[in-house]
Design a protein around this nucleic acid. Structure first.
Lengths: 210, 210
DNA sequence: TAGATTGTTAATCGATTAACAATC
DNA sequence: TAGATTGTTAATCGATTAACAATC
């Protein structure tokens, strides 16, 4: 869709803009300038204008940005105006926690199926969805229009399952397993490596010079 | 401890080095060169050597790096040779999932207390720990040597609680609440904003040009 | 119109990659 | 010693910040 390549750094900041604009909108704020937003978000106004101008001129000289309009625009850039059907692989503690996360559904991410290899959770109902065995993933994906798989299984099984998901036609994987998945280029992987996050905190605690 | 300032980018990569080295070590690999590790991790050998040399010369010309030694060194740089006591604020789905995450304890992160404002979970035992009311945080922190608070509560309460934690002497906050906490400079905050991660995936799905 | 603030170009800063002398 | 590979300097690349002309 976009012709020029947008840098990873810019994309990484979009959701945060989206969050602030959503809150401003909820508070009834109608317009905001890059410098007001800048002091709110603690980034430079220059960066905000540069970032936004990767996608088009959303503002108006002498006025600033219309909060609601910019919020919607960033939402659509992020693809939040479309529905995404998900399956959840791994119904352990983390999987169940994510399944129960209300906010995802609000943003158009809808969990359609839950799968687990352990027969002790199969048949269990989580958020109205019955946990199915792994072998049913293929037929489930054929019958449902699934975009995204959420991988909340231990690292050992993850690479294997990821390979299968690719074969079945998955488009994106939200990977909580503590491995790097090796999938073809046209599959998007977003990693959430919680233990790495905790290690960064640990480093900063040990080396805090401030 | 360190005198020169290490860039955020470098620190962000350390846990991944640590993971790969741990796996190599488990496989019985004794030595590795930057170029071997480079092709394994899909980063440049140059970057590996630059990154490591921020902390000292861990390698040997003509030989490479000793896997076990480098693993231990990075572990200690990350502060994983020390124990960290944690409290968990918010015993909802995500909080419980994290409490049951076995690997943290293995790395020296030990959950000492769990707190929740809802009386319906207070008294419940999670991983051997009884959920206490929020009002008990202060005395608990006085009696126990707590470094890190894990914030798994909705965004509304989070800023407030963070402020209190700071008063009670917390050193670091692992923040899963969907707000930016505004704490003094000497407090380390590591954010895990799951919905922002999912939005990035969504963006990449919509704009995948590959 | 005058004032405000964007969009955008230019300047700076920092991070990554390349190259190679040092050395095991 | 010769070969291999690091540690480190220099070159390149990309991202951030500053500045200002365009324009609402």
């Amino acid at each position: 869709m976009e012709s020029k390549e947008i840098s990873r750094a810019v994309i990484g900041r979009l959701p945060r803009y989206y969050r602030y604009l959503g809150e401003l909108n909820d508070e009834g704020v109608e317009r905001i300038s890059s410098s007001e937003l800048s002091s709110l978000m603690k980034v430079t106004a220059s960066q905000i204008r540069q970032d936004l101008n990767n996608f088009g001129g959303f503002g108006q000289q002498g006025y600033g940005y219309n909060v609601k309009y910019l919020y919607d625009e960033i939402g659509s850039i992020l693809g939040l105006d479309k529905k995404h059907n998900l399956i959840l692989i791994g119904a352990g503690n983390l999987g169940q926690a994510l399944a129960n996360y209300v906010n995802f559904e609000k943003r158009g991410f809808i969990i359609k199926g839950i799968f687990d290899k352990s027969s002790s959770v199969q048949g269990k109902v989580i958020r109205g969805i019955t946990v199915q065995p792994m072998d049913d993933i293929e037929s489930f994906m054929n019958e449902n229009d699934i975009d995204i798989a959420v991988l909340t299984i231990p690292k050992n099984g993850a690479v294997d399952i990821a390979g299968k998901l690719v074969k079945y036609g998955i488009k994106g994987i939200w990977n909580f397993a503590h491995v790097d998945l090796n999938v073809p280029d046209h599959i998007e992987v977003e990693n959430v490596h919680l233990s790495e996050s905790l290690m960064r905190l640990s480093y900063n605690l040990s080396n805090n010079l401030k």
